[in-house]
């Protein structure tokens, strides 16, 4: 029997979801496998299966619907000399995140899935959004996406993967965000830095310092000559 186009699409979708799941769980660079997909769509597809295939393609997905063609994606990994469970526990309490994410003013947990984020913007202003956890696997994986109406549309995941031979845990963060343009763009640049790779890298490094050394190395407040 010849396969219908519907069968073909289901097959593709399932292959794609499987490929994504293994990419996120594996040792490769995730963004190299992103191709034409939006991260949000892919994360939703893995969590929920079918509904998301349309959204998983950039063309015709939410991105285009919202008129956003300039998404920024970042991937950073750091190895932390602590067990995955300990790191996951700290991170999963989202209200802990401002301890090492400098640009965040606060994260408030509203329910098991939803949280409210406030980030610093220039001139004492702030930007805010709500985010939902899309999927979580204890001690392994948390993915999230902002809900509709966010000042900054963003999504991403953090993955905790034990390194071989008790060498700690590889913590990988992959994020995608869409600067909405206009006046808010400057604020976004400030929040995520002009070099988002470096900013996310620095935040992961501060997370590592906090977890391994118990504090974040700094020189702020030390004396200097005039």
């Amino acid at each position: 029997m010849a396969s219908t186009s519907q069968d073909k699409q289901n097959q593709d979708e399932s292959n794609e979801t499987g490929r994504w799941a293994s990419l996120i769980g594996g040792g490769a660079m995730v963004l190299m496998g992103l191709r034409q997909r939006s991260l949000r769509g892919a994360l939703t597809a893995i969590a929920g299966g079918t509904l998301a295939y349309q959204a998983a393609t950039k063309k015709g997905g939410i991105q285009e619907a919202l008129g956003m063609d300039k998404t920024i994606t970042v991937e950073k990994t750091v190895t932390i000399n602590k067990p995955a469970a300990e790191l996951y526990r700290f991170w999963r309490n989202l209200e802990n995140l401002p301890h090492f994410m400098k640009h965040l003013k606060s994260v408030t947990v509203i329910s098991d899935k939803r949280s409210h984020w406030v980030a610093n913007a220039p001139m004492g202003a702030s930007v805010e959004w709500d985010a939902d956890i899309i999927e979580e696997r204890e001690n392994e994986f948390i993915s999230w996406a902002s809900v509709e109406g966010a000042d900054v549309d963003n999504s991403g995941f953090v993955r905790f993967k034990p390194a071989p031979a008790d060498r700690g845990t590889e913590v990988k963060v992959v994020m995608e965000y869409a600067p909405p343009g206009g006046a808010v763009t400057a604020a976004i640049a400030k929040i995520f830095g002009e070099e988002p790779e470096q900013q996310i890298g620095d935040e992961l490094r501060r997370f590592k310092m906090l977890m391994e050394a118990g504090e974040i190395a700094t020189t702020e407040g030390q004396p200097k000559g005039s």
């Binding site: 050394a213 504090e215 700094t218 702020e220 030390q222 004396p223 000559g225 005039s226």
Partner: peptide
């Protein structure tokens, strides 16, 4: 290089 008068250092982190 110069010998300047600067503020005394203070404890910043717990360690």
């Amino acid at each position: 290089v110069r010998v300047d008068t600067v503020p005394d250092p203070k404890i910043i982190n717990p360690r």
